[in-house]
Design a protein around this nucleic acid. Structure first.
Lengths: 239, 239
DNA sequence: CCAAAAGTGTTCTCGATACACCCATGG
DNA sequence: CCATGGGTGTATCGAGAACACTTTTGG
């Protein structure tokens, strides 16, 4: 029943890569981390930090390794997003790429270009220009995914510093969704979830009444999650 | 800047496959379509209908082709689910698989085994036994995905015949979620969405008051979707 | 004292929940 | 006439939406 081994050999001629979409949030704007390639194809183009997976390397592990090697970033929680396999998306042969994504606090990392990266920086999500390969499409898929999941999971907090103001949190949601939210209702909704803790401090150095700082109570979230709790923030935008 | 071509060649030794998780709903039960393999590895095991992707074949197209070749099913709307790439999941070398899933009306198809399939049948989702490769894990991921997406998208209708009763629809949700729903509230919720149309007929041959038949108004759904509508059915289960 | 953002309370409406009874049909 | 599931109405409660003013600080 076993066909000629050579028949199967014909399938083992492909390569795959991992590409990481790393979201950050800074100065009230959503950003992603891009590297500038120093290798063909697409040398000198901005691209997602990604590279080939080793022959017997686990996919998730490869995503972590590649990110570490190209950016120096460690302990980043990566989640698989989607796999892109348009036939001629890579000039060297058949290459499909498994995209991963993550949300990080920009202040926690100081990415440094290494490996195939000659340069690295955070880019505003709406000013990306031309990217290598089909990376712009990958970013768009990741962004759509982010918009949806931020509604039902408290992932927004992963983008903010450990202590943040309610207005910062609101700006984050507004920035991701591209909508305006109503201040009072947003606050009531968020606080009624009982997921934020007042850290007892206030903003410093602002030319107006300083805002209270909050932190996300992760333990509380896990409890609520078990009970079948459904985190959700809606637009509530002005009509 | 371009390393030796042979360096890259070392990456082009992998293969990838597509595997399809096809959900159906029949006799009030959720089912999936499995084939029995006649080829090593895992000859005689039940498995998802899946096979190798051709060297320069598009992933989505491959999923469709493989499904057609193994089951005879055409015009099935497949959606990419997740990619599985544990290093030694396939005995012949490095093989990663891109899983797709779909919801179909069982009555619309009469699957016939062909190619690597020596047999094919619908299996109850909770009586799968041992499957080839990591296919059980794939099914579990697909099922979790189904549970979530049926909450926010009207995909349940894809599993039902063109005309169905409200009780059938309710049983579908109960079967997918494994919970009980409250009849009146379920009906009120569903009907208030204005997505169902009374087709003006009733059930035949039942030993009780026959139920009205409804159809899903797809056009209406598209309109609501554009306006930012959020389809959602909650448990509402008895406490 | 002014600018600028923080912070708060109330009303209205609508949807979610909970609950019990009558209806139409086949056998 | 009875067993079986189909089908409905109502009261209560809580959350979402809409809306305007006072508070605190730095400069």
């Amino acid at each position: 029943m076993l066909p000629d081994k050579r028949y199967f050999d014909s399938f083992f001629k492909s390569a795959f890569t991992v590409d990481n979409v790393i979201f950050g949030f800074d100065e009230g704007k959503l950003k992603i981390l891009l590297i500038r390639r120093n290798e063909e194809p697409y040398a000198d183009y901005w691209a997602l930090p990604g590279y080939f997976v080793q022959q017997y390397e686990d996919l998730d592990a490869a995503a972590e390794r590649v990110l570490r090697e190209m950016t120096g970033m460690e302990n980043v929680y990566l989640e698989q997003l989607h796999t892109f396999g348009t036939p001629y998306r890579h000039a060297f042969g058949r290459v499909i790429t498994v995209a991963y994504y993550s949300l990080v606090k920009i202040a926690d990392f100081r990415p440094r270009a290494a490996g195939v990266a000659q340069d690295i920086t955070w880019h505003l999500i709406d000013e990306l220009g031309v990217l290598a390969f089909d990376h712009l499409e990958i970013v768009q898929v990741a962004l759509e995914h982010l918009k949806k999941s931020i509604r039902t999971r408290p992932i927004g907090f992963e983008l903010l510093p450990p202590a943040f103001t309610l207005t910062e949190l609101q700006h984050l949601y507004e920035s991701v969704w591209g909508t305006e939210l109503e201040k009072r209702n947003f606050r009531k909704k968020i606080l009624s979830m009982d997921l934020l803790r007042d850290v007892g401090k206030v903003q410093k150095g602002v030319a107006h009444r300083p805002a209270k700082l909050y932190r996300f109570d992760e333990q509380r979230y896990r409890e609520l999650e078990k009970e079948g709790f459904n985190f959700e923030v809606r637009d509530g935008g002005k009509k």
